[in-house]
Design a protein around this nucleic acid. Sequence first.
DNA 1: AAGAGGCCCTGATAGC
DNA 2: TGCTATCAGGGCCTCT
Length: 287
Amino acid sequence: MPELPEVEIVKQSLQKAAKFKKINRVLVNNRNLRFKIDNKFENNIKNKRITEVKRFAKFLIIKLDKKNFLLIHFGMSGTLHIIRKNQKKYHTNLSFYHSQELPKKHNHIEFVFSNFKLIYNDPRRFGFMRYFSNYIKLKNYLNKYGPEPLSKNFNISYLKKNISKREKNIKNILIDQYIVSGIGNIYASEILFYCKINPQKKGSELKVKSFERIIKFSKYVLNRAILKGGSSIKNFKNIELKSGYYQNEFKVYGKDNQQCSNAKCKFKVKKVFISNRSTFYCKNCQK
DNA sequence: AAGAGGCCCTGATAGC
DNA sequence: TGCTATCAGGGCCTCT
């Protein structure tokens, strides 16, 4: 589900709600997430205090007492919900589904604090959690991924080195976490629209001008999405507060057969499948 | 070594 | 109504 901006929003709200709070108990209702939750998981986490909440790409990183870390990836359908004591309804800030009540199914993991619970829900179970006993191990795990688009390492020389020899299309390059990490299927289409690059174009066909645009608009789109509270493409009837309005600014994603948002362009947005994933673009504006 | 494709899952919706 | 097919914000593994 969430790409970089959505995980950033979860990070921010979790920071507010749970920083310095102690996890008294951990309940695992279903160990079969993307990777099996091992039997030591509960003991590794419980009775520790959250000292910091961070994010790398689409990973939520929860720093615990004793310099331990809990890494959470939300996959396609993972969400975190907070339920406060004596409160049936729950806070929607951590959720991108914006349902009003806690889902009845797929509440796989619960973190119990003194005044509230954090519940990890994930219907498709493509998400996962992993415990790291120290920073080095966490770092080694994350090292295999490419830089975030928001980082200084995502620059012209990096793109020249890592894209210009690639024979695969730029859309697939942008969602390849080993090249650049944090961009997913929605934002890839959005970014390429701003860049005026056809998603099917090969990395090796791109010129420096295109690299400059990719760097500029990756940052622009992701930062703007964070500012708007991320994107919620399901159940947004009940959106409240600042959560999830970026879908209102989509230029191409989900807009097949609709007029191109460029006022001077008469073409319609086209939907194609690239490696089985839906991709949206304007063939007139994106060359 | 890089790239394409399959697969892991459930749920919502479209179409008959 | 009830069936089936398709698609969904991801990423790992295997094969070529």
